[in-house]
């Protein structure tokens, strides 16, 4: 079907002729294998040219595209935008570009212009009314009210809600709050502390065992640690004289002198 002669332009002309034949219905489009034709054509181009020539390749692609377009036009269902006059907002650009490419017949063009012209009467009427009603001022704040742009529901954000909540809280009676510190009784730490106090001098004075600054939780923690060490038999406490200091020592060093 395609003449692959040694004439490069002949190949392109053949492709163009084929496209026209399909468009005119002289060739059955379903019987044409675009793939086979183009593969053969590309081999022909390689054979004829040897080296690539961009201008020629450009012409070849255009001619090949014309064949594909012609076949598609004949075989695919008609464009819904042309037939059903069904428009898609998102695809309006496509619609308009197709429309601008469309070739109007004289009748269509005249009908279109007439329809447009008919609306010009309506435009004149609206312009007259606009001018007449421009001189009239409605009562109360009606215009202002109607001009207010209603707020979309999704415009209400978290900051707006927080602001509204703040207003309500401001009106609510104020409650008094007190700070209650959390008790942190770390027995292990207190035990280690007592041990280190005794290790230094071999003994420790009871009242010097407590952490500084002295806190209620700290005192209780150290005292519980002291009781635990006594229970384990690790330390002993003793008093050398009446009203004297209470001394804490390791049990091994003071065997037999415990409480």
């Amino acid at each position: 079907m395609i003449d692959f002669s040694d004439n490069p332009q002949g190949l392109i002309k053949n492709l163009e002729s084929l496209a026209k034949a399909i468009e005119r219905g002289e060739t059955e489009p379903a019987s044409i294998s675009v793939h086979d034709i183009l593969v053969d054509s590309i081999h022909g181009v390689d054979r004829i040219l040897g080296e690539p020539d961009l201008d020629y390749i450009g012409d070849f692609i255009t001619a090949a595209a014309a064949v594909i377009k012609a076949k598609a036009h004949k075989l695919l269902p008609p464009d819904e935008y042309e037939d059903d006059n069904v428009e898609n907002t998102e695809e309006s650009e496509l619609f308009l570009s197709q429309d601008s490419d469309k070739e109007w017949s004289n009748e269509e063009l005249l009908a279109h212009l007439m329809e447009y012209r008919i609306f010009q009467d309506a435009v004149e009427e609206l312009a007259r009314r606009d001018k007449a009603w421009r001189d009239v001022f409605p009562g109360s704040d009606s215009h202002k009210v109607s001009k207010e742009i209603p707020m979309a529901p999704n415009k209400m954000g978290i900051p707006d809600l927080l602001s509204a909540l703040k207003d309500i809280l401001m009106d609510a009676p104020r409650e008094e709050f007190y700070y209650v510190p959390r008790d942190e009784l770390n027995l292990e730490r207190s035990i280690n502390h007592i041990r280190s106090c005794i290790k230094g001098k071999g003994e420790a004075v009871f009242c010097e065992l407590f952490f500084h600054p002295i806190t209620r939780a700290g005192v209780i923690g150290v005292f519980l640690a002291l009781l635990e060490l006594i229970r384990l038999g690790e330390i002993i406490v003793h008093q050398d004289q009446q009203f004297g200091e209470i001394i804490v020592t390791f049990a091994l060093e003071e065997q037999g002198n415990g409480i």
């Binding site: 005249l110 212009l113 329809e115 008919i118 009467d121 309506a122 009427e125």
Partner: peptide, 14 residues
């Protein structure tokens, strides 16, 4: 209340 579209001016246009 909108006036009907008579197409008078369209006729003039023609």
């Amino acid at each position: 209340e909108l006036p009907p579209l008579t197409g008078d001016s369209a006729s003039l246009f023609l």
